[in-house]
Design a protein around this nucleic acid. Structure first.
Lengths: 340, 340
DNA sequence: CCAAGTTGAGCAATCGTTTTCTCGACGCCA
DNA sequence: TGGCGTCGAGAAAACGATTGCTCAACTTGG
């Protein structure tokens, strides 16, 4: 208290101060600032001037208390802020743009206890809505206890179909990759990807096999090569495939790590990319895709768009203008560089 | 309103409801829940029970309005959520732990207009404090218009020495690297790093030269090799250095990208790492450091600790228990793997 | 010139908690 | 038995804004 007196900014001007300076009542001041209510232009300008002069910033807490809207949304990320949640988060920020809505960040570290705790905090703050995201495309159980708070799942969809989820189109991504390779005239295509217990790996593999089958082809090496998402696996798998199926002319990889490993292994064996063998990666993760030799042609999941769309859906649910609020799938983009 | 009646959770129980159910006054209910005030145990338990039964969650907006504390801090990141701000952010979350403080995220995209807009939002929400971070160690001008809101700069320090900044110890990081290499008996050490207009590059280079000089040595190649932070540069620089100074026996690289490029170039020339030439990277960025061949010995800036410390400093300033609030420098860690 | 509108601005209730008083009841000791 | 201290609980005033209502002062029209 004592300190505040010395410190002009911490004893922020209140509406009542603005009103006093403008010589009007609080009510009038409020109406002048919000643009509602009728009054003489001269009066309105007097209030605006006073607010300006005092550096008035409305107290959103007070406002929220009265209006019931907090102009805040919660963003729950289930396991850290990582390679996937970051672009989603940026998309969210983008969609919120220059508006008055802010984002409360909650990182649960994949811990359910923590998730519940954070959720409670969000509820106490009376957030207008919640966006849930994670680093896997595998569906996750819905957030327990959100009650009637509008919630949208981004990237990591909810297992409950009644929830609104914004997904990445894994099948579509595989389609882009395979059709690109087929279009290049490649017919002996290997698919090297992550572990089977990842939906992303399974979904992309399924579509890959489907498309190859439809074209009368079988995958190089006779099957999908499941492993982990690492470069090491990419190198190992490439060696194995080339050994067992030397006529392989393309690799579709489950992510850019793997693709880079494949590229390295091929180069070291003297195989030319893309002349002899083409490579398509997945994720379009700059760090990997651009410094690979050659730079990778890869599938971009358009994560920013996922975040953006999730936000728009959420906003429309909040405004009860829920006509548009339904689960959607965001198409991928094929980024063509030098490897295919 | 009409809708709320159907929807139990959206018409959240208020303190007055709890009080009614427990047969006490609001004041008493408040005291019971907060643990303050004296009352019979029986009364307190009755209130607690009622709160439990109604699923009462206090409205923090109302609370904040009255107490003046919002239990919220703002996190301004100046250019996207990236490789550096993410770990810092996680450190912040860590320090906040299971407490009642939440983080409002503001990404300014390096745009001053946007920064001002976000800052205004934070002020309107009456945040208790602000943490500013960015992706460069170069000092940045202080956040304009924070007034008396406690502010701490993390990783990207403020140009104003009166502000509290938590920095990474670039000189210390270089010291760890060089002393490690010297300890390994290496004497012809090259330093390949980023552009001169990055303070990080300059600071580490300066210390490197200083330590080498003190040991009576000159850098391999006769000078510091400034370039960019990329693998491509690492490869090019390694080639050039080996050509002009074939007796080079170690590389200290400005980041792990460069180090990885160096490792690749050396391997392809048949130079053995670490037997013939040792490599130390910087950043300990898993993706790069672990999949390099061999895995990189590298300097870890301990970014999480920077975030954690910044948060603790901020909290102590907020509590006006500012005895500890002063700029600090967080030491780096040397992570020894196989490359040196 | 008077009644009926219109306009501009103030009053006061309200949002959900916290916190300071106030006050009755009870126990204890002289 | 009377006075005093303690204890437990309620009443009510904040906190800072919004908004429906009231009402005085003008306009306007008959």
């Amino acid at each position: 208290m004592t300190d505040l007196a010395h410190n002009p900014a911490s004893v922020r001007a209140r509406l009542i101060d603005v009103a006093a300076r403008a010589g009007v009542s609080v009510g009038t001041a409020s109406k002048a600032l919000s643009g509602s209510g009728r009054m003489r232009d001269e009066t309105r300008e007097r209030v605006l001037g006073a607010a300006e002069a005092l550096g008035f910033t409305p107290n959103r807490n007070a406002q929220s208390l009265h209006t019931g809207r907090s102009w805040t949304i919660g963003l729950m990320t289930t396991d850290g802020i990582g390679r996937f949640s970051t672009p989603v988060l940026m998309g969210v920020e983008d969609a919120l743009g220059a508006g008055k809505i802010s984002v409360l960040l909650c990182d649960t570290r994949g811990d359910t206890i923590r998730e519940q705790h954070r959720l409670r905090l969000l509820i106490e703050r009376r957030v207008d809505g919640i966006i849930v995201t994670g680093r896997r495309t595998d569906p996750r159980p819905p957030l327990a206890g959100v009650g009637s708070i509008p919630t949208v799942y981004a990237f990591s969809p909810s297992t409950d179909p009644r929830n609104v989820s914004v997904r990445s189109d894994d099948a579509g991504g595989a389609t882009l990759a395979i059709e690109h390779l087929l279009g290049l005239g490649r017919t002996r295509i290997a698919h090297v990807t992550g572990p089977t217990h990842h939906a992303a790996a399974r979904d992309r593999a399924a579509r890959t096999l489907e498309l190859l089958g439809r074209a009368g082809l079988a995958p190089a090496g006779g099957r999908v090569h499941y492993g982990d998402w690492s470069e090491v696996w990419g190198r190992r798998a490439a060696d194995a495939v080339i050994r067992t199926a030397p006529d392989t002319d393309a690799f579709f990889c489950g992510n850019d790590h793997i693709a880079r490993g494949v590229a390295d292994a091929l180069r070291e064996r003297g195989v030319r990319v893309p002349e002899d063998v083409a490579i398509v990666g997945y994720d379009n993760w700059d760090t990997m895709a651009l410094s690979a030799r050659p730079p990778l042609t890869t599938v971009d999941m358009n994560l920013g768009e996922i975040g953006r769309l999730a936000t728009l859906q959420l906003l429309s649910i909040i405004d009860a203008d829920a006509r548009e609020a339904a689960s959607v799938t965001v198409p991928c983009l094929l980024i063509v560089r030098e490897s295919a």
